[in-house]
């Protein structure tokens, strides 16, 4: 209970380190989410509109990847961008960009899957309506994006929720470097390992608040439809 008090004190005292950590977390997660959205939304749409052999298999694989453990993603990307790995020359290991890369890999299946399943819930009459009114491929795509905007937005927010709360990727790829790649989650892991529970708790409170906010937004959006 005492640590709760200290936690709130830390949040409201404007502690520079806490602020930087929260900011780094948000910044990295927003970039990751943005990049993933640019890749995942078109992928989900393509998947929805095209039929090809083994499509069901691919969808099953993507759905299975939703449960991808963060440390496995971390390990995979680590072996890619490590100096002795194939992408070593990029020299991004232990930088925010490494975390972004890992988080993109982590959240890509989530966005593809949610966009895909969201679009498949769009009423069949919708496409017939577009076609009968004379819409061509590009128009159909644009109209679908607009019609499914809530689905897509909630997919994006779900991706954001996943990356802001993950610790495996940030820890392995970012290295938990103070003032640089230390995020809320890696910091919580570190502080609690040091027994600094109030600092950990302060960050935990912020993290939970952000998670609740994001979920609240998703909920309102879905309800609004």
């Amino acid at each position: 209970m005492e640590s709760f008090g200290r936690a709130f004190q830390l949040i409201f005292s404007g502690n520079r380190e806490v602020f930087t950590i929260v900011f780094t977390s948000l910044y990295i997660s927003i970039i990751s989410t943005g990049v993933t959205a640019c890749l995942g939304i078109p992928a989900g749409i393509l998947l929805h509109f095209n039929t090809f052999p083994f499509k069901r298999g691919l969808v099953a694989v993507i759905n299975a990847l939703l449960a991808l453990p963060t440390v496995v993603v971390g390990l995979l990307v680590f072996s890619l961008i490590s100096r002795s790995g194939p992408l070593g020359s990029l020299n991004i290991l232990f930088s925010p960009w490494a975390i972004v890369m890992g988080q993109v890999v982590l959240s890509f299946p989530i966005m593809v899957s949610l966009v895909y399943s969201g679009l498949s819930k769009v009423d069949g009459r919708f496409y017939e309506t577009l076609v009968t009114l004379g819409a061509k491929g590009r128009n159909v795509l644009a109209a679908t994006l607009i019609e499914a905007r809530f689905v897509i937005l909630s997919a994006v927010l779900a991706g954001f929720g996943r990356v802001i709360g993950e610790v495996g990727v940030s820890m392995m790829l970012g290295g938990n470097i103070r003032w640089y790649t230390r995020t809320m989650t890696t910091s919580i892991a570190l502080e609690s390992s040091k027994g600094e529970f109030s600092q950990a708790l302060a960050l935990g409170v912020i993290l939970v608040t952000i998670a609740l906010l994001v979920n609240g937004i998703i909920h309102t959006l879905v309800k609004e439809r």
Binding site: D123, F126, E128, T129, T132, L133, G134, I146, R225
Partner: peptide
Amino acid sequence: RQKTVYVHQNPLLFSATVYDNVAYGLRI
């Protein structure tokens, strides 16, 4: 394709304003 239009039983409107719905065919 361009000159015949089908209206569903229980038609589906786009989740937008009436104006946007009616204007759609002209916009495209």
